[in-house]
Design a protein around this nucleic acid. Structure first.
Length: 418
DNA sequence: TCTGGGGTCCTGCCTCGT
DNA sequence: TCTGACGAGGCAGGACCC
């Protein structure tokens, strides 16, 4: 296993025992912040908060300098600034993060074809079949760290283990800029003392449910009965945790992933009561969803909407369509229909539209759509809303409006939105 | 203090057809 | 013809992940 390198990092030594390992979990360190530093080196060493500076935005990522003040991802920006008043707020540049992500993933794929990206900044690699080419898993992990640093200019942390779950936990412990190798025979000793909250899939609720029954560590999970775990977190999660606690994880590295749903949602700068405006917003979101479906050549069989009220109560409504579609108008009408059935009239802070039950276009659907007609209708609805209210929120809605990949000033990419 | 946006998965309840 | 059991699928809500 690993040890500190004298600079507070966890780095397994050269020649660490990696017997029985084959999975690497590579996680970029404070990725968004690191990309911003890459593009503007004057930011290096500063506490950075990646997030929109105004409205109701939350922290997307923070540099380690900001994390020292307690700043964490998903924290409201206003709260982060109270903790670290000297932090520099940098608005996110998601397209740039995708670009750098492709560079990093290309390095992984030059090592092994078995790469499973989990998000823009992390991936699992199965290196079992490329040991002759590159060396042992621990050696490959070291090569990856060096190449990412040399070719992209950023640091990453790597966990090396026999299973995905342990590799992921190891990389988390190794952060930042570290590497931790857990030999297969060390797996149970590695897991035993760790808190249940460190397990993948255990969030605040599940952790509380387990801890209230005296189950605090992974060893405790291993020693708990199936019935006890079932009562605490339900049969599915209970069985999974028991398996992971025994060091078993049957999941392979999957290179193919099929999207199961596509959606868009938006939180307003201020809560909205006006139903017509909200209906227009649903239409706009539906149009963006439809555009993405068409680009991917998918159709949707089920539409769902999400509504969040000012008190944060959230509800969803869904409807299976008589025929699958990728037409913005049909998706929008379904979304509006679902919205109209909601009786509660309190101010609303968020609306969302999601397409589920996806299938390839033309596989029995109606297969007709017209971007221009969709767009004219959305534009008309937004125009109506602007004429009636003229608020900043509506102006923003107009700018975000066209999601079909055409247009110029109204093109979403002109505003950094995909 | 005041909580984004994009997703996946699970659970419980209900309806419907057999 | 009525009734109950059962499975499948739709729907709503929530936890979790990055």
């Amino acid at each position: 296993m690993g040890h500190g390198d004298g600079r507070g990092r966890v780095v397994s030594p050269e020649g660490a025992d990696d017997t029985g390992t084959r999975i690497l979990h590579v996680d970029m360190d404070a990725f968004y912040a690191a990309v911003e530093v890459l593009d503007d080196p004057t930011l290096r060493g500063l506490p950075l908060i990646i997030g929109a500076p105004d409205g109701r935005s939350v922290v997307s990522s923070a540099s380690y300098e900001a994390r020292r003040y307690g700043v964490r991802a998903a924290m409201p920006v206003s709260q982060a600034l109270r903790l670290c008043p000297t932090a520099r707020i940098v608005p996110p540049h998601f397209h740039r993060y995708q670009e750098v992500s492709r560079q990093v993933m290309a390095i992984f794929e030059s090592i092994t074809p078995l790469v499973e990206p989990l998000s823009v900044d992390e991936a699992f690699l199965d290196v079992q079949g490329v040991r002759r080419l590159w060396g042992s898993p621990a050696r490959i992990a070291q090569i990856i760290r060096e190449r990412v640093q040399a070719e992209v200019g950023m640091s990453c942390s790597v966990g090396v283990a026999a299973t995905k779950h342990v590799a992921k936990m190891a990389s988390t412990i190794a952060k930042p800029d570290g590497m931790l190798v857990v030999a297969a025979s060390d797996t149970l000793d590695f897991l035993a003392p760790r808190p249940v909250r460190a397990m993948w899939g255990v969030g605040p609720k599940a952790a509380e449910a387990l801890e209230s029954r005296g189950i605090r560590t992974i060893r405790d999970i291993r020693e708990s009965s199936a019935e006890m775990l079932d009562r605490a977190v339900g049969p599915a999660l209970g069985a999974r945790l028991a398996q992971l606690a025994r060091g078993e994880d049957p999941r392979h590295v999957e290179t193919e992933r099929v999207e199961k749903s596509v959606g868009h949602e938006e939180t307003f700068d201020h809560d909205i009561v006006d139903r017509e405006f909200l209906r227009a917003e649903l239409l706009r979101l539906a149009d963006r969803v439809a555009a993405r479906l068409r680009r991917a050549q998918w159709e949707t069989g089920t539409i769902s909407i999400k509504i969040r009220f000012d008190d944060f109560r959230t509800l969803s409504r869904s409807q299976t369509l008589p025929e699958p579609t990728a037409v913005g108008q049909r998706i929008g009408e379904a979304a509006q229909g679902l919205f109209d059935q909601i009786e509660r009239r309190d101010p609303i802070r968020l609306v969302g539209v999601r397409a589920e039950n996806l299938r390839p276009a033309g596989a029995g659907g109606i297969g007709l759509w017209d971007d221009d007609e969709d767009w004219r209708r959305v534009e008309g609805a937004v125009d109506d809303a602007v004429a009636r209210f003229g608020s900043a929120t509506i102006t923003r809605a107009r700018h975000l409006g066209r999601g079909d990949g055409r247009g110029s000033a109204l093109h979403p990419k002109a505003h950094g939105i995909d």
